[in-house]
Design a protein around this nucleic acid. Structure first.
Lengths: 142, 142
DNA sequence: CTATAGTTGACAGAAATTGTAGGGTATGAT
DNA sequence: ATCATACCCTACAATTTCTGTCAACTATAG
């Protein structure tokens, strides 16, 4: 039950982006350096985030990435789900197998199903704005 | 964010054990067959469960495993935590690293911390008795 | 036309998970 | 006693997933 570093990187990078973009594109190179994330790896993550319509890209010199919408409209759950693909705790919930021949199987599946809903529900209750505000607060007090 | 099959196996096996034990030990061989879990693998899991004081073993012929206490006193969260070792979403929460030099890092860490609490809280709210009752209900109606 | 910075796919290394093998040890039954 | 059962334990092989790297390509500002 461990979150991939992919997801952790993605959220940290998004907070960084939100903090440092004043409406202007932020280059991955800068984010990678500040957050100590391998640049090439970060590129892959932002490709997914772009396809997930969470960020927009600007190519060419002076380019970089922008939030696709205001930070209050971006939920952490989205970010995680986008880079992490399936946010379901067990495999047999994505693809349909014949499974569930055993009566206990279904019972436990219900548990995992509900667990997944709880996880998504919690992560969706937090916005990028929340994190950004908190990060700014911490940054200023210290 | 995926639960290991270890954890899924463990919970299923515990439900099976609870269903089939009438105060008498149940052999892993039987559980493995009914649940279609590799026997050797199941043995490893039950070693952990025994060390976690969730089950007790009876050796020799006619032996097997028993619940260490009534099923209402065994929570799913315990079972999962016992076989899954750390139930924390991110690595840097177990071992202490210097981390958290970046202000955003701490912010996101809070999120993972709270997520972990939610997960544990949910899984601890369900007892083995709940699952057993539900499994029996399903089994009888079909 | 050149440097910048995103876009993409392939792939290598590392780590964790999952499963297998093979021996040991306690115990009930014959 | 001895034998079969079934737990106990360790090491390791196979597999998968995750993490990270590389190289080549495309768009664009200056």
């Amino acid at each position: 039950m461990r979150l991939s570093t992919r997801a952790q990187y993605a959220v940290r990078a998004m907070v960084d982006l939100s903090l440092h973009s004043g409406g202007r594109p932020v280059a991955l190179r800068d984010i990678a350096e500040r957050e100590d994330i391998p640049l090439n790896y970060l590129e892959q993550l932002f490709n997914r985030l772009r396809r997930g319509r969470i960020v927009e890209s600007v190519r060419g010199p002076g380019g970089g990435y922008l939030l696709a919408r205001e930070s209050a409209a971006i939920r952490v759950g989205e970010i995680v789900a986008t880079v992490e693909e399936p946010l379901t705790p067990v495999s047999c919930m994505d693809e349909k197998k014949g499974g569930c021949t055993r009566p206990e199987a279904c019972t436990t599946h219900n548990v995992w199903q509900m667990l997944g809903e709880r996880i998504r529900g919690f992560l969706d209750s937090i916005t990028l704005e929340d994190l950004t505000r908190e990060a700014r607060r911490r940054g200023s007090t210290e």
